[in-house]
Design a protein around this nucleic acid. Sequence first.
DNA 1: CTCCGTGCAAATACTTTGCAAAGCG
DNA 2: CGCTTTGCAAAGTATTTGCACGGAG
Lengths: 128, 128
Amino acid sequence: MQRKRSKKREAILNVLRSTKEHPNADWIYMQIKKEYPDISLATVYRNLAMFRKEGDIISVGNVNGHERYDADTSPHSHFICNKCGRILDLNNLSVDKDVLDKIESNMDIKVEDCAVVLSGLCKDCKIK
Amino acid sequence: MQRKRSKKREAILNVLRSTKEHPNADWIYMQIKKEYPDISLATVYRNLAMFRKEGDIISVGNVNGHERYDADTSPHSHFICNKCGRILDLNNLSVDKDVLDKIESNMDIKVEDCAVVLSGLCKDCKIK
DNA sequence: CTCCGTGCAAATACTTTGCAAAGCG
DNA sequence: CGCTTTGCAAAGTATTTGCACGGAG
């Protein structure tokens, strides 16, 4: 299937690229709605699925039943707050490539991706 | 709430403890059904949720919309096959505790858990 | 006797899909 | 014009919950 240019599709990617919220589909939907009031939630879901398949975005994980997305596809890790659901980037934590290579040959598998996810309490939630 | 002893509840934990499948709720349900034909899927879900809250089991992640569980709560990592959904244990891969401690103080957060999940193709699916 | 645990069925809630209309190239 | 993208509403589906009954202590 050949991709065409679409303003709404680009808007979805732009919203995701210009936030550090690691939002879910509905949050993105509401942002786009400000500029394109007639957008449908289905369009957001459809395009997120497409972006993910194409490798333009990644899914951080599912928090309270909501899939959370990230447009930063460079190797980095995440921290998820168990209380408020906030997601933080951890840029200095990742698994060495040669460690992954070693696992690949030891286990006789093909490793395509590696996700490190910490969880606990964020700065704010820790206090309470 | 005070826990009572229940044969079905124990059966659920036993099934999970005696398999390396990292199964989902439905797989466990079908196993228990052999011994207790009148068990309800809701009971499996209820008890899995309870076990997870108590820390007796962990969730490996969600594969194709199915939450997958593991009764092995010792620190270890997992590999998920993107094709067949199989989950393998990786016992020699984990994040050092002092690395986590450093992140805790640097980011001013409380880290309660750390999950490393690789994904790709398993031995069998790699061939095809 | 008093709660806890369970089966059953209905309710949730996120996500996906079918279809006809609109839009890009 | 042909094929892609979208809005709308309906469908899907894993999981949760309300309720009344059975069971353990």
